[in-house]
Design a binder for these strands. Structure first.
Lengths: 135, 135
DNA sequence: TGCGAATTACGACACTTGTCGTAATACTGC
DNA sequence: GCAGTATTACGACAAGTGTCGTAATTCGCA
């Protein structure tokens, strides 16, 4: 039986590729997956990759005849981990340097600046009066 | 001969581990590397991993007798790539959602908020008056 | 009910990575 | 110059992943 995996370790690039496709498509058959991946990959290759993810508990498969595959982990779970790792790598866990990097990297549009300001505004409120922010 | 690799693809966790060690130590012998890694890994294992990185052109090795190994890629190159990938994954290349995520993830201190404000201030100037934007 | 097509199960093969052991080579102090 | 040690080169093995081919099974329906 496929073992349920609570913790999501850092996934190989290829598996993320599959998961992203599933997040976009929600549920697909092998054929659908093959199409959705868009790359020239053989049918059985897709089948194998999908099934291996099922074995790992990262993807679910229905028992219906043309089996439907769907992600068993949320983007949040996977990305959270990646993000965590990256923040750690890039700036030892510090958020500000990373944001600085992001902003300076390619520049931001005036619209984005406005949005960022709003974000900080919000954060400021949450910080100064942590009345009962959920989570 | 080791082929020089201009582009740095997404590296496996283990190789990053080695590179990070090298960035910290700047240059080490195999013994040094083994020590620096801090983990109970065999000498030849370290040797192999290091040499494989050399083959890929990511690490340089001197021809001195106890060879000195050092990173041939900068943290910036590797992180830039990781960052690029992540921004793409998390928010399709959009910076704002990612920043939002970062801020909401663990919250930020008032000091950080001040720093963020300053950052945006700067970005704003750069954007509103692109007097001589090089590029 | 039996055939052809769709679907699935299995297993194979190459490459990468982590882990070593062992053989070959280079140095060093006598 | 040589023995003994430090260093390096080579090759091996297991696990994981990407790629398939082919055999087995299940359906739909004539």
């Amino acid at each position: 039986m496929a073992k349920k995996r609570a913790k999501v370790p850092r996934l190989p690039e290829g598996e993320i590729e599959i998961l992203e496709m599933l997040w976009r498509e929600s549920a697909v058959t092998i054929h659908g997956a093959q199409q959705a991946l868009g790359q020239p990959i053989g049918y059985t290759t897709v089948q194998t990759r999908l099934n291996r993810l099922v074995d790992k508990g990262l993807v679910a498969r229905t028992k219906t005849r043309p089996a439907q595959y769907s992600a068993a982990v949320t983007p949040a779970e996977v990305r959270e981990r990646d993000l965590e790792t990256l923040v750690e790598r890039v700036s030892s866990g510090r958020v500000v340097p990373l944001v600085a990097h992001l902003i300076n990297r390619k520049g931001v549009t005036p619209e984005e600046i406005a949005e960022l300001k709003a974000l900080i505004e919000q954060a400021e409120h949450k910080t100064t009066k942590p009345k009962g922010g959920k989570r």
